[in-house]
Design a protein around this nucleic acid. Structure first.
Lengths: 186, 186
DNA sequence: CGATACATGTAACCGGTTACATGATTTT
DNA sequence: AAAATCATGTAACCGGTTACATGTATCG
């Protein structure tokens, strides 16, 4: 019941933010519209329903200020159940599917892992990210070769961009790992 | 009427593919599930409705084979109206919004430009891509600096990934431009 | 007192996901 | 003849977009 498999990147972003400190819907909108977290819908039509869903699932809890007022102000924070489920979700090893369909969520998961669950939690995540990214790069390269002269100059260039992007991601992850290991050695 | 502003990446991919040669829904599903075009829904529930919508808009035309059969086979090709609208859409200069919200569509637009509308059509596109990507990198870097010590190691690393990604995109575009110019010089 | 920022909601719409259903053709 | 593949569709659901609606607090 309440399986965590589907968890939109908006929900994930909300969970990650309320995990740090209690936030109102408006706080979240502000963050989404003014920071590089910015590719999340800052629209109330997305955020308020998402908060309702998460509360109904029992992952976050809302404290109402200004009780009785016509304009209630709701501060949401992560529940212990939410924390458990969030951890389960972000700790999952990176899959090929994540890489192809949910790239945006990966960086979110990384920051949540580090900030909420501790530096150590990021290391297996980065390992699986590196592994899957390299696998995917190899698959794309094989595809380029197999294709032979079949594809156009433009198709090949676009594919190169994809390969370069995943390769850069793997390199970034390796560098991040080194920095985190250095940082936590002290 | 029939404004082209909203054009999902699935629709764009379909238009780009039928522009090259007539395709059935099944052909498209095959392409999406077996090639690196693969981050498009290969599900019939996405593709057949999308084909219907595009035909209703008059952008593609379906020729029915096996007429009268209970299992008709429909080959779709781009209409002249569709070609005009597609060209208008892919030739638009790249905006910041495209970069942040529709990265996936950018490579699609690039290959369509090159394959369907000619190598020359890609050059202004790549110029605007380079310009916007560099702008965005500068904005992200300013954000990193402005933030100061406010953000965590993990937030900073995630931001670095973003910066690196956009910088790599700009470098790729510059390289692509050179290759295309060399290729077409002959 | 008017403007602006704070703050929350809702309803219509739209497109993608999932799962199911059906039939035709080719291969073994 | 069974199995696999080719091929098209549909219905329920879900979440995000857009646009609208409402009210509060603060500042000039």
């Amino acid at each position: 019941m309440s399986s965590a498999s589907h968890l939109s990147s908006l929900s994930l972003a909300i969970l990650g933010l309320v995990a740090r400190s209690a936030k109102t819907g408006y706080d979240l909108r502000k963050l989404f519209s003014t920071t590089p977290m910015g590719h999340f819908s800052a629209s109330p039509g997305a955020i308020y329903p998402a908060l309702e869903r998460l509360e109904k699932q029992g992952w976050i809890r809302g404290r109402i200020e200004n009780k009785g007022s016509l304009r209630p102000r709701r501060q949401y924070c992560l529940s212990s159940k939410g924390r458990t489920e969030l951890e389960r979700h972000v700790r999952k090893p990176v899959t090929r599917e994540d890489l192809v369909w949910h790239v945006d969520a990966l960086m979110l998961r990384f920051t949540i892992l580090g900030d909420v669950f501790g530096a150590d939690a990021t290391l297996p995540f980065l390992d699986s990210l590196i592994r899957e990214a390299n696998h995917h790069v190899r698959w794309l390269e094989e595809f380029t070769d197999g294709e032979g002269g079949e594809s156009s100059l433009f198709g090949r260039l676009a594919l190169d961009q994809g390969i370069g992007g995943y390769a850069a991601l793997a390199r970034w992850a390796a560098k991040a790992k080194r920095e985190i290991e250095n940082e936590t050695k002290s």
